[in-house]
Design a protein around this nucleic acid. Structure first.
Lengths: 139, 139
DNA sequence: TCTTAGTTTGGAATCATTCTAAGCTGTTGA
DNA sequence: TCAACAGCTTAGAATGATTCCAAACTAAGA
């Protein structure tokens, strides 16, 4: 199972996609996948890396996040213009987004049903279905 | 019905929200609501305004789009970091987004079902449910 | 008409992200 | 083991959308 050894799994996945397991990518994979499911921004990851004494440039953070997303290790969740999260949970699931706090919370696939998906426009294939339930702190 | 006179309706709505019907807001409302349902970016609206010989600054375009969104005349659809559309169709509906072309297409409420919405986190109210089906041009 | 609170504006500022060109490093094959 | 090169990383500049700012303008009521 993927869940058992997410970090080792990540390395395997990198290699099989022809991505070299460099010091930076290994360190970032460790930060991203060793703590279970999480939602993180590029800026946050950069800060965490520095805290962990891993020297990585912001450019590399962005490169890595996008490469990981391409090979299916991460999911990008866009919630606001100029604010996107990377989700280490790549299973089929949805999100609550709190517009006041910026907090993003997973919704298990089981607790929501999206039925009768319409046919995509001609000449296109469905890549993903995003469901974001936008909430605000109650008054 | 709203649909019959969207422009007049918009003016009424503005007034009732305490927003003055200024030259700029009226002109932008006309551009936005007289052509039926549409998806438009700030930049596009600015260009259209200029083409129509309406002198409006970009700052005002942004102010106006956000004010209109707040009073419920527009819906903001965030599809990519740094790219958001404003939708003049504020009825309950969803979207196809073509990641290759940037095209956004409406999906009528009738042709998709989102059931069994889970309870929102404590202390929050649901504001909106966004469903974006991301597609790519088939190979 | 006068007053003033609400609006608009150009331009500067901001912010996340991407680009660039140069230097570094895994990996492969001899 | 090591040379050679494709792939990586990097600092800093560039970009692009959006927001901010302080000054000038204007709608609306007295």
């Amino acid at each position: 199972m993927t869940i058992e050894r997410p970090y080792t799994e990540a390395l395997e996945r990198l290699k099989s996609m022809g991505l070299r397991p460099t010091r930076q990518r290994m360190a970032l994979a460790r930060i991203l996948f060793e703590a279970g499911d999480r939602h993180i921004t590029a800026e946050q990851l950069h800060t965490e890396a520095q805290t962990a004494n891993v020297r990585v440039s912001l450019a590399t953070i962005y490169n890595t996040l996008h490469q990981f997303t391409e090979v299916g290790l991460l999911n990008e969740v866009v919630v606001e213009p100029g604010r996107s999260y990377f989700d280490t949970n790549v299973s089929n699931h949805y999100h609550f987004y709190n517009e006041d706090s910026g907090e993003l919370v997973d919704i298990g696939e089981a607790s929501i049903h999206v039925d009768e998906l319409p046919e995509p426009p001609d000449g296109t294939d469905v890549r993903r279905v995003d469901v974001i339930i936008r909430v605000r702190s109650a008054v």
